[in-house]
Design a protein around this nucleic acid. Structure first.
Lengths: 297, 297
DNA sequence: CTGTTAGCGCATTCAG
DNA sequence: CTGAATGCGCTAACAG
């Protein structure tokens, strides 16, 4: 399990036939239009420096907004940059700074799931919004089990990114492990399962579940059912726990022995279809099985 | 319009306060866990070479699957790679090869739109699928007008990518211009408007629209209405053109003068809501205006 | 087949 | 404040 991983790494890091084709096409196309535009080589810091009559170091300083540059020099460099259309070479910069200048949004879910659930749209929107005026790039990496999971891992390990935001973490994905090994700074959206030391943002899921139970109970309901979220995700598990807590505190038993055929809980996956499907099976059967209620408060 | 662009380039390419904060957080976190794991510096090709008892060049060759390496040496290097857990430094490689090893999927649409429309999910899925065993990374860049459009442009110009796949191109986005200037290899999904030389894949939209008209006409329908796609996208425009051609060939006039209050065409945006909304306005008013039919075939 | 030699473009000490 | 020098890690000729 460890050795094959390394072997795979090696292969993946090399040029495959697939990329070969891509490259050829790339060259061909590039060549096709290259006659129409000028500039064979992109201007470098060296060019800028020469044009501004300063050294590379000084040019670098103004590009990076280092304060210790005389206004005169600063202006000269700025002008040169504008005239030459200079853009720093990211690879070169990255090589020396050891930073990729990008942050990955990791979603361990199948692609169609990510695109189908409005939750992710909102989350992505918020994240990109927040990073709108940051120079850092936002990269979306998604996939689950075969369908992109190893791609994510490769991405995280490949040094493509400076940090990660993990959005829909499941207990069984290896994201946490990868993050720990690569020592990548990361934050989870939703408390991570089995990764106690990692920072995260989340709502109080437990309180939410409990609140739901209390609300229904306050309305006089006594036979309460819930469609829970996936139990391999802490939000799903925490909410269910809160729900049960709420029932228990109200003295409503969830014990199958206690007159109910079984606890009125079905586990969904945060999507609508399964909820509807399960309902018709579980609730009906439960409803038709016994009418007895648990003891009052 | 040109000068400000350059000025903007400079600013964007430099470290802003935003990234500054990100960096600090990054360092802090990294430092926090750095005591728990070994390896201060990632192994380099140099290390691998030394360990395998060969030169850096040879090590590089086997990593890149260059055939001209003796099996013995190859194995030695492979072993060293595995033992050291070597992973090529992308920045360094990129610096010399001048390739980013990634391809961008550009979607000039608002994020919520992209995540809401199943079309994009399918498209993205297909693309990543096709590139699954390619070493190239797939990056998703989306946004339209303010909400990410300039981010896309910056991305394309930043040398982050080797090529682009443009998915939902509108006539007014600047993608084509950027692509031309950067000479990035690109392919459009859907014939690009105003960019005749760029390669694309598409269905025969014109024939589709015509087919629809012919089908309805064959069924004996005579007052035909259509909800067209956005007219600033060639698929939308082409389909409508085909539709009109179909009507014309059947001798069905679309001329308002010809007894109809106006042509029964409403322009939507490839989503369901506008279609429903417009229908109730247009169709009803058209229906109540005149009952006369165009001349028969 | 393999090692040696050069840079790729940039940030960064370290002296002035 | 500024410039000269150094090296990040890697690929690509160019000789052996």
């Amino acid at each position: 399990m460890a050795a094959p991983d390394e072997g795979q790494s090696l292969e993946e890091s090399t040029v495959s036939p697939g990329l070969g084709r891509f490259k050829r096409a790339s060259r061909g196309y590039r060549g096709h239009v290259s006659r129409e535009t000028r500039s064979r080589r992109a201007p470098t810091l060296e060019d800028v420096a020469a044009r501004a009559g300063v050294s590379r170091a000084t040019a670098s300083r103004v590009v990076n907004e280092d304060p210790r540059v005389r206004p005169r020099a600063r202006e000269a460099v700025a002008a040169a940059v504008a005239e030459l259309g200079y853009r720093p070479n990211r690879a070169a910069r990255s090589l020396v700074t050891r930073e990729a200048d990008s942050i990955a949004v990791v979603v361990p879910e199948a692609e169609d799931r990510v695109f189908g659930d409005p939750f992710f749209a909102a989350m992505l929107g918020g994240i990109t919004q927040a990073l709108a005026d940051s120079p850092a790039q936002v990269l979306l990496a998604m996939g689950r089990r075969g369908q992109g999971a190893e791609k994510i891992e490769k991405y995280l390990r490949g040094g493509y990114t400076d940090g990660a935001i993990v959005v829909s973490h499941h207990r069984d994905d290896r994201i946490g492990e990868v993050l720990r090994e690569t020592q990548l700074p990361a934050v989870y959206v939703g408390r991570p399962a089995g990764e106690p030391r990692l920072p995260f943002v989340d709502v109080d899921n437990h309180a939410g579940g409990r609140l739901a139970a209390e609300h229904l109970i306050a309305q006089g309901r006594r036979r309460l059912a819930t469609i829970a979220g996936p139990q391999d995700m802490t939000p799903g598990a925490d909410r269910l726990a809160g729900w049960r807590k709420g029932l228990a505190e109200a003295g409503i038993s969830t014990d199958p022995q206690d007159g109910l055929m079984h606890e009125l809980v079905e586990v969904g996956d945060f999507t609508a279809p399964p909820a509807g499907r399960r309902c018709s099976v579980c609730w009906l059967s439960a409803r038709s099985s016994t009418g007895s209620s648990p003891p009052p408060t």
